[in-house]
């Protein structure tokens, strides 16, 4: 009986203003942290193998995005662990928090997608070609964020460990995709399979699947969530 059909309740969504404000706060946090962490990473790279200016610029942008993406995941986790219980304690329905979280993701997603496209264009990639993989990565990021937030809640310390490992894996996948994309290997990789947009489509599909999984697990988790 309990928890059933909680997406079915009509009557609008309250409290979106809170999430909207949090979303903008988070994008600020993403960009600021990324801007601080990135030069540090860059310094390490520069101190290592001799890099030409072009590669350095590319790595810089890449790091910026990856760090931003990571922070997006963390922000989402924080908002899940902290804001959702708080809002439920104030009288929010669970369905409303789910919609709220979506709104919360929006400014960050839009901001990061814009940064991603700008990066692609700066490196000579047509904007259109970056769109599908960019969206895919963002969806995957959000889905993963939700999945991991649930995992951490369920498993406690073990979940936290999985969290770190998966974070790393996600980061590596992301940077790998980015590298391929930016260096034109996307096209080569795609051509090998006979279609030019293959990689972008695959990334988008993976993103959609992860996002769907994230949503489903979050919904399940929310319907049983206890607030103390």
């Amino acid at each position: 009986m309990t928890g059933q059909g909680f997406l079915a309740a009509p009557g609008g969504v309250r409290g979106l203003g809170f999430w909207w404000r949090q979303g903008w706060k988070s994008i600020g946090a993403c960009l600021v942290t990324a801007a601080i962490v990135t030069p540090a990473v860059l310094l390490i790279f520069l101190a290592g193998p001799g890099l030409d200016a072009g590669s350095a610029q590319y790595i810089f942008l890449c790091c910026f995005l990856i760090v931003g993406f990571m922070i997006l995941l963390i922000q989402e986790n924080v908002s899940f662990q902290a804001h959702i219980p708080q809002l439920i304690r104030m009288g929010s329905t669970r369905r409303e928090t789910l919609w709220g979280l979506t709104l919360f993701q929006l400014p960050m997603a839009v901001g990061l997608l814009a940064a991603f496209l700008a990066l692609g264009m700066a490196l000579g990639l047509p904007a259109g070609r970056g769109l599908a993989p960019g969206l895919g990565i963002l969806l995957a990021g959000n889905g993963l964020g939700e999945l991991l937030a649930v995992l951490q809640r369920k498993l406690g310390a073990v979940g936290l460990l999985c969290y770190v490992v998966l974070y790393g894996a996600a980061g590596m996948t992301l940077s790998f995709s980015l590298t391929m994309l930016v260096e034109g290997e996307v096209a080569a990789f795609g051509r090998r399979f006979g279609y030019l947009w293959g990689n972008g489509a695959a990334l988008l599909a993976a993103g959609l699947i992860l996002y769907g999984l994230g949503r489903l697990s979050l919904r399940r988790c929310l319907s049983k969530l206890e607030v103390r």
């Binding site: 309990t2 059909g5 909680f6 309740a9 009509p10 009557g11 609008g12 309250r14 304690r89 009288g91 329905t93 669970r94 369905r95 409303e96």
Partner: peptide, 14 residues
């Protein structure tokens, strides 16, 4: 449960 119309009528100030 999950009924916005009903929950708008109930405030549990914790």
């Amino acid at each position: 449960w999950e009924n916005i119309l009903a929950m708008s009528c109930i405030c549990f100030s914790r």
